[in-house]
Design a protein around this nucleic acid. Structure first.
Lengths: 268, 268
DNA sequence: GCAATATTGCACCATTCCGTACCAACTTTT
DNA sequence: AAAAGTTGGTACGGAATGGTGCAATATTGC
């Protein structure tokens, strides 16, 4: 009921009232400009971030130029999973991919809170598990799907986390996330554009036909999303910032994914 | 001191004395014949397994024939990570890849124990984190490394978990784990054999030159292993079964990996 | 408006990998 | 000893991807 303490981040939303009020005393708003680095490899994680908008990539690197995305976090998730699990750092880099905003809490406060309110840790661990499933599915897609399919998956995941169908992305960026050649992305985007599923303009990709994208992404998309819902519920966006109408703006993770539905249904 | 309560599984080894004695009352020995399924996709996890020998694969599947390995567990680890994190099932399949033995505990007992002895959960969560890093690195290798490199990585991971350099593996099996064609594995194995790094005979691959394999696997191998050591210490094997001499049989995860050492050293 | 920069389009060739098929060699069963 | 099953070797064309370089176009900063 206290409007100032409702958050758009879905993890914060589903926290039990008491746990949330304990946490929210330590939460402060944070801007998430594109490119902002939230966690450096092998350096202490200073803060835990709960995005409200935009999204964040986690990237693993072998040698210098062998980077690839292994995690994808938006308003449905949080950063700092290693802290939840008892570590203070990660070998991966975490940075803002598409600008947004959110709330964050200092690591020390976060640890103290988890100790005082065990319900918090329970929810965070459930997210960590959903996140693991996502990473495992990325391993599957990287190993078995062609660029076009992986690209469709990535665009769907981005779409899930954006209010609007316009995604501010360059081919170069996508090529790093997918771990492929930049011209490979250009070609694949042209093909997707040929199918009328997207519209690509300099620096902006617009989703035109999500259903068709789901078909193209095939089994690469959906399973982690269904697992997330099973573990943490449907991530329904709250009202947009003042100025937008009051309807929820994004129900996609919740219901738009027919493929994901199918996977979820399988569980019986 | 109590010989009957020392285990070869490294997680059990590093448990604080009190936690281990609480747990060991509920641990029973389990045989792990090749092919035994320990966890079915989306079905309740009945037991948590701590292998002493052999190793276990976790496999994610998209559609039917789109399977790929996303997790690899031997004497250094445990199965049932989702249970540690508050779930009762997983979308992945878990089965014995190379036969061995270990100890297991019923899921209900396991949950009760974690509640009663919080120190247990701490250690298990640290393992879960190391396991996540492994999966993320698999995503990296799948996306960016060629078959030969990925195969070298896989053989090293298997070697780490075996007492002997002979690995009972078929090309077919490897092709499923790596998510590639079977003849692709055959070719890559021939090349590795040409470099004198392995010797392949029907159903058995023998590691001849681990150092050279490390060079071939390059940055695909080592980072998760270094993270494991940071989180859980050096997994030194205990004495072999009666009949072997008393020396530790396998120090590889601990020290043989020069590449891994390098990665570990980087952390300062 | 102009220059500098970022982004995209494209082309070339080499390599890797896939899908498939078929047979040989070995092992197990009968 | 023969049959059946498993495992491995090899070959073929075609598709996908990588590495690279460069030009064309849009955007940004001045």
């Amino acid at each position: 009921m206290d409007q100032s303490r409702t958050y758009r981040n879905h993890i914060l939303k589903i926290l039990p009232r008491g746990d949330l009020s304990a946490l929210s005393a330590y939460l402060h708003p944070i801007r998430l400009p594109a490119g902002k680095v939230l966690e450096q490899p092998n350096e202490p994680i200073r803060q835990i971030v709960f995005p409200d908008s935009g999204f964040i990539s986690v990237v693993a690197s072998g040698k210098q130029e062998r980077r690839i995305e292994t995690g994808f976090v938006g308003f449905e998730g949080m950063t700092g999973v290693p802290v939840v699990m008892g570590d203070d750092r990660s070998p991966h880099e975490t940075f803002v991919q598409v600008a947004g905003a959110g709330h964050c809490v200092e690591t020390d406060d976060f640890l103290a809170l988890m100790k005082a309110q065990p319900g918090l840790k329970e929810v965070f661990l459930r997210f960590a598990l959903a996140y693991m499933v996502q990473t495992a599915h990325t391993a599957l897609a990287n190993g078995r799907a062609r660029i076009e399919e992986r690209l469709a998956r990535w665009l769907l995941m981005a779409h899930d986390r954006m209010e609007r169908p316009e995604l501010p992305l360059t081919h170069e960026l996508l090529s790093v996330m997918l771990g492929v050649r930049r011209p490979g992305v250009t070609d694949a985007l042209h093909r997707l554009e040929g199918y009328r599923t997207i519209r690509a303009r300099r620096g902006v990709i617009t989703i035109l036909d999500r259903e068709r994208l789901l078909e193209i992404a095939d089994a690469s998309y959906g399973l982690p999303e269904a697992e997330y819902r099973r573990l943490l519920g449907d991530p329904v966006r709250g009202p947009l910032a003042p100025g937008a109408n009051g309807r929820p703006a994004n129900l996609r993770l919740a219901g738009g994914a027919s493929e994901a539905r199918g996977l979820a249904a399988r569980e019986g």
